[in-house]
Design a protein around this nucleic acid. Structure first.
Lengths: 110, 110
DNA sequence: TTAATTTATTAGACATTTCTAATATTGCTT
DNA sequence: AAGCAATATTAGAAATGTCTAATAAATTAA
Protein backbone atom coordinates (compact mmCIF):
# COMPACT_ATOMS: atom_id res chain seq x y z
CA UNK A 1 0.00 0.00 0.00
CA UNK A 2 1.45 3.37 -1.03
CA UNK A 3 1.78 6.30 1.30
CA UNK A 4 -0.97 8.08 -0.59
CA UNK A 5 -3.39 5.21 -0.06
CA UNK A 6 -2.49 5.07 3.62
CA UNK A 7 -3.31 8.77 3.98
CA UNK A 8 -6.53 8.55 2.01
CA UNK A 9 -7.83 5.91 4.41
CA UNK A 10 -7.00 7.85 7.56
CA UNK A 11 -9.70 10.45 8.06
CA UNK A 12 -7.21 12.40 10.15
CA UNK A 13 -7.33 16.17 10.70
CA UNK A 14 -7.70 17.20 7.07
CA UNK A 15 -7.62 20.76 5.80
CA UNK A 16 -9.87 21.71 2.89
CA UNK A 17 -8.63 23.51 -0.19
CA UNK A 18 -10.65 26.59 0.75
CA UNK A 19 -9.10 26.63 4.23
CA UNK A 20 -5.65 26.38 2.69
CA UNK A 21 -6.36 29.28 0.32
CA UNK A 22 -7.84 31.46 3.03
CA UNK A 23 -5.07 30.70 5.52
CA UNK A 24 -2.36 31.31 2.96
CA UNK A 25 -3.83 34.72 2.09
CA UNK A 26 -3.83 35.70 5.76
CA UNK A 27 -0.35 34.36 6.41
CA UNK A 28 0.96 36.06 3.30
CA UNK A 29 -0.52 39.31 4.57
CA UNK A 30 1.45 38.89 7.80
CA UNK A 31 4.67 37.97 6.01
CA UNK A 32 5.69 41.35 4.60
CA UNK A 33 8.41 42.95 6.74
CA UNK A 34 6.60 46.26 7.17
CA UNK A 35 3.33 44.54 7.96
CA UNK A 36 5.00 42.20 10.43
CA UNK A 37 6.61 45.22 12.06
CA UNK A 38 3.22 46.92 12.27
CA UNK A 39 1.82 43.84 14.02
CA UNK A 40 4.78 43.76 16.40
CA UNK A 41 4.51 47.41 17.42
CA UNK A 42 0.75 47.18 17.79
CA UNK A 43 0.95 44.20 20.10
CA UNK A 44 -2.23 44.31 22.15
CA UNK A 45 -2.49 48.11 21.90
CA UNK A 46 -4.31 50.43 19.57
CA UNK A 47 -2.61 53.15 17.52
CA UNK A 48 -3.59 55.81 15.02
CA UNK A 49 -2.26 55.74 11.48
CA UNK A 50 0.07 58.65 12.19
CA UNK A 51 1.41 56.88 15.30
CA UNK A 52 2.17 53.84 13.18
CA UNK A 53 3.85 55.97 10.55
CA UNK A 54 6.14 57.40 13.24
CA UNK A 55 6.79 54.03 14.90
CA UNK A 56 7.38 51.98 11.76
CA UNK A 57 8.87 54.58 9.47
CA UNK A 58 7.72 54.85 5.89
CA UNK A 59 5.34 57.15 4.02
CA UNK A 60 1.77 57.71 5.17
CA UNK A 61 0.49 56.38 1.87
CA UNK A 62 2.51 53.22 2.18
CA UNK A 63 1.40 52.57 5.76
CA UNK A 64 -2.21 53.16 4.80
CA UNK A 65 -1.96 50.61 2.01
CA UNK A 66 -0.37 48.02 4.29
CA UNK A 67 -2.99 48.64 6.99
CA UNK A 68 -5.66 48.15 4.35
CA UNK A 69 -4.22 44.77 3.40
CA UNK A 70 -4.13 43.61 7.04
CA UNK A 71 -7.66 44.88 7.65
CA UNK A 72 -8.96 43.23 4.49
CA UNK A 73 -7.72 39.84 5.76
CA UNK A 74 -9.36 40.41 9.17
CA UNK A 75 -6.03 40.59 10.97
CA UNK A 76 -6.54 44.20 12.04
CA UNK A 77 -9.69 46.08 12.95
CA UNK A 78 -10.16 49.82 12.55
CA UNK A 79 -12.02 52.24 14.80
CA UNK A 80 -12.69 55.76 13.60
CA UNK A 81 -12.70 58.62 16.10
CA UNK A 82 -13.11 62.15 14.74
CA UNK A 83 -10.68 62.42 11.86
CA UNK A 84 -8.35 59.73 13.19
CA UNK A 85 -8.47 56.00 12.61
CA UNK A 86 -7.17 53.61 15.25
CA UNK A 87 -5.99 50.14 14.32
CA UNK A 88 -5.55 47.10 16.55
CA UNK A 89 -5.16 43.33 16.27
CA UNK A 90 -8.58 41.81 15.73
CA UNK A 91 -8.68 38.94 18.18
CA UNK A 92 -6.92 37.10 20.95
CA UNK A 93 -6.02 34.08 18.83
CA UNK A 94 -4.14 36.22 16.33
CA UNK A 95 -2.19 37.78 19.21
CA UNK A 96 -1.30 34.30 20.43
CA UNK A 97 -0.18 33.37 16.92
CA UNK A 98 2.05 36.46 16.78
CA UNK A 99 3.60 35.55 20.12
CA UNK A 100 4.27 32.04 18.90
CA UNK A 101 5.89 33.40 15.73
CA UNK A 102 8.17 35.40 18.01
CA UNK A 103 8.99 32.24 19.98
CA UNK A 104 9.87 30.39 16.80
CA UNK A 105 11.74 33.09 14.90
CA UNK A 106 13.15 35.27 17.71
CA UNK A 107 14.06 32.61 20.30
CA UNK A 108 16.53 34.94 22.03
CA UNK A 109 13.88 37.33 23.37
CA UNK A 110 10.95 35.44 24.87
CA UNK B 1 4.26 63.12 25.32
CA UNK B 2 3.56 61.48 21.98
CA UNK B 3 2.86 57.81 21.56
CA UNK B 4 6.22 57.39 19.89
CA UNK B 5 8.06 58.89 22.84
CA UNK B 6 6.13 56.68 25.23
CA UNK B 7 7.20 53.59 23.31
CA UNK B 8 10.81 54.68 23.08
CA UNK B 9 10.98 54.90 26.87
CA UNK B 10 9.47 51.49 27.50
CA UNK B 11 12.17 48.91 26.89
CA UNK B 12 9.40 46.41 26.27
CA UNK B 13 9.79 43.25 24.22
CA UNK B 14 11.36 44.78 21.14
CA UNK B 15 12.07 42.98 17.90
CA UNK B 16 15.18 43.94 15.93
CA UNK B 17 15.10 44.78 12.23
CA UNK B 18 17.11 41.65 11.46
CA UNK B 19 14.63 39.49 13.37
CA UNK B 20 11.77 41.08 11.45
CA UNK B 21 13.48 40.41 8.12
CA UNK B 22 14.34 36.83 8.98
CA UNK B 23 10.90 36.06 10.38
CA UNK B 24 9.14 37.61 7.42
CA UNK B 25 11.18 35.49 5.01
CA UNK B 26 10.22 32.34 6.89
CA UNK B 27 6.57 33.30 7.20
CA UNK B 28 6.44 34.23 3.53
CA UNK B 29 7.84 30.81 2.71
CA UNK B 30 4.99 29.21 4.67
CA UNK B 31 2.34 31.43 3.09
CA UNK B 32 2.17 29.99 -0.43
CA UNK B 33 -0.87 27.72 -0.81
CA UNK B 34 1.10 24.77 -2.17
CA UNK B 35 3.78 25.14 0.46
CA UNK B 36 1.20 25.45 3.23
CA UNK B 37 -0.46 22.31 1.90
CA UNK B 38 2.87 20.52 1.91
CA UNK B 39 3.35 21.48 5.56
CA UNK B 40 -0.17 20.31 6.39
CA UNK B 41 0.19 16.92 4.77
CA UNK B 42 3.63 16.40 6.28
CA UNK B 43 2.42 17.11 9.78
CA UNK B 44 4.86 15.28 12.05
CA UNK B 45 5.60 12.60 9.44
CA UNK B 46 8.28 12.21 6.83
CA UNK B 47 7.57 11.75 3.13
CA UNK B 48 9.54 11.32 -0.06
CA UNK B 49 9.30 13.87 -2.86
CA UNK B 50 7.22 11.51 -4.98
CA UNK B 51 4.84 10.91 -2.04
CA UNK B 52 4.39 14.67 -1.72
CA UNK B 53 3.81 15.03 -5.46
CA UNK B 54 1.01 12.46 -5.21
CA UNK B 55 -0.47 13.95 -2.03
CA UNK B 56 -0.34 17.60 -3.01
CA UNK B 57 -0.77 17.37 -6.74
CA UNK B 58 1.40 19.40 -9.08
CA UNK B 59 4.47 18.64 -11.17
CA UNK B 60 7.57 17.03 -9.72
CA UNK B 61 9.61 20.06 -10.71
CA UNK B 62 7.25 22.44 -9.00
CA UNK B 63 7.17 20.42 -5.79
CA UNK B 64 10.95 20.18 -5.78
CA UNK B 65 11.24 23.95 -6.07
CA UNK B 66 8.76 24.54 -3.27
CA UNK B 67 10.52 21.99 -1.05
CA UNK B 68 13.79 23.79 -1.76
CA UNK B 69 12.32 27.09 -0.59
CA UNK B 70 11.02 25.55 2.65
CA UNK B 71 14.33 23.80 3.26
CA UNK B 72 16.31 26.96 2.57
CA UNK B 73 14.40 28.76 5.33
CA UNK B 74 14.99 25.91 7.77
CA UNK B 75 11.31 24.97 7.91
CA UNK B 76 11.89 21.53 6.42
CA UNK B 77 14.83 19.18 6.73
CA UNK B 78 15.82 16.62 4.12
CA UNK B 79 17.18 13.14 4.61
CA UNK B 80 18.59 11.28 1.65
CA UNK B 81 18.21 7.50 1.47
CA UNK B 82 19.48 5.80 -1.70
CA UNK B 83 18.03 7.79 -4.57
CA UNK B 84 15.08 9.11 -2.56
CA UNK B 85 14.91 12.24 -0.42
CA UNK B 86 12.63 12.38 2.60
CA UNK B 87 11.39 15.69 3.90
CA UNK B 88 9.97 16.53 7.32
CA UNK B 89 9.26 19.55 9.51
CA UNK B 90 12.48 20.63 11.14
CA UNK B 91 11.52 21.15 14.76
CA UNK B 92 8.82 20.89 17.37
CA UNK B 93 8.25 24.64 17.63
CA UNK B 94 7.46 24.91 13.94
CA UNK B 95 4.94 22.08 14.33
CA UNK B 96 3.33 23.96 17.22
CA UNK B 97 3.19 27.10 15.07
CA UNK B 98 1.48 25.16 12.28
CA UNK B 99 -1.08 23.81 14.72
CA UNK B 100 -1.77 27.31 16.00
CA UNK B 101 -2.20 28.57 12.44
CA UNK B 102 -4.80 25.86 12.02
CA UNK B 103 -6.54 26.98 15.22
CA UNK B 104 -6.64 30.57 14.00
CA UNK B 105 -7.54 30.04 10.34
CA UNK B 106 -9.47 26.72 10.43
CA UNK B 107 -11.37 27.10 13.72
CA UNK B 108 -13.98 24.52 12.67
CA UNK B 109 -11.60 21.56 12.80
CA UNK B 110 -9.48 21.67 15.93
C1' DT C 1 -15.80 79.49 4.41
C1' DT C 2 -10.90 78.65 4.26
C1' DA C 3 -7.09 76.32 5.85
C1' DA C 4 -5.00 72.54 8.20
C1' DT C 5 -4.87 67.72 9.60
C1' DT C 6 -5.59 62.94 8.99
C1' DT C 7 -6.38 59.09 6.21
C1' DA C 8 -7.44 56.75 1.78
C1' DT C 9 -7.08 56.05 -3.17
C1' DT C 10 -5.11 55.82 -7.74
C1' DA C 11 -1.88 55.08 -11.50
C1' DG C 12 2.15 53.39 -13.07
C1' DA C 13 7.10 52.02 -12.92
C1' DC C 14 9.79 48.51 -10.96
C1' DA C 15 10.79 44.20 -8.55
C1' DT C 16 9.67 39.65 -7.19
C1' DT C 17 7.34 35.27 -7.49
C1' DT C 18 5.48 31.47 -9.85
C1' DC C 19 4.86 27.99 -13.17
C1' DT C 20 6.14 25.23 -17.26
C1' DA C 21 9.13 22.73 -20.13
C1' DA C 22 13.36 20.98 -20.87
C1' DT C 23 17.38 19.00 -19.05
C1' DA C 24 20.88 17.60 -15.60
C1' DT C 25 22.24 14.73 -11.79
C1' DT C 26 22.35 10.87 -8.73
C1' DG C 27 21.83 6.18 -7.41
C1' DC C 28 20.05 1.69 -8.43
C1' DT C 29 19.44 -2.48 -11.39
C1' DT C 30 20.46 -5.63 -14.96
C1' DA D 1 27.96 0.17 -19.25
C1' DA D 2 23.06 1.06 -20.28
C1' DG D 3 18.62 1.90 -18.77
C1' DC D 4 15.52 3.32 -15.25
C1' DA D 5 13.74 5.92 -11.34
C1' DA D 6 13.93 9.84 -8.25
C1' DT D 7 15.16 14.44 -7.55
C1' DA D 8 17.19 18.97 -8.74
C1' DT D 9 18.23 22.78 -11.75
C1' DT D 10 17.65 26.23 -15.33
C1' DA D 11 15.59 29.72 -18.34
C1' DG D 12 12.06 32.51 -19.47
C1' DA D 13 7.18 34.03 -19.85
C1' DA D 14 3.33 35.47 -17.10
C1' DA D 15 1.36 36.97 -12.92
C1' DT D 16 1.57 39.35 -8.66
C1' DG D 17 3.34 42.55 -5.26
C1' DT D 18 5.46 46.94 -3.88
C1' DC D 19 6.60 51.67 -3.69
C1' DT D 20 6.30 56.59 -5.07
C1' DA D 21 3.97 60.67 -6.26
C1' DA D 22 -0.04 62.94 -6.79
C1' DT D 23 -4.54 63.65 -5.34
C1' DA D 24 -9.05 62.83 -3.09
C1' DA D 25 -12.00 62.67 0.95
C1' DA D 26 -13.34 63.59 5.61
C1' DT D 27 -13.00 66.08 9.83
C1' DT D 28 -11.53 69.86 12.65
C1' DA D 29 -10.05 74.62 13.60
C1' DA D 30 -9.73 79.48 12.64
Amino acid sequence: MSVVEQKTNESASHVSAEDIEKASRSIKAMSHPLRLKILCVLGKDEFSVQDIVDLVGTSQSNISQHLGILKDKGILVARKDANKVFYSVGDEKTLKLLNMMREVFCPQNI
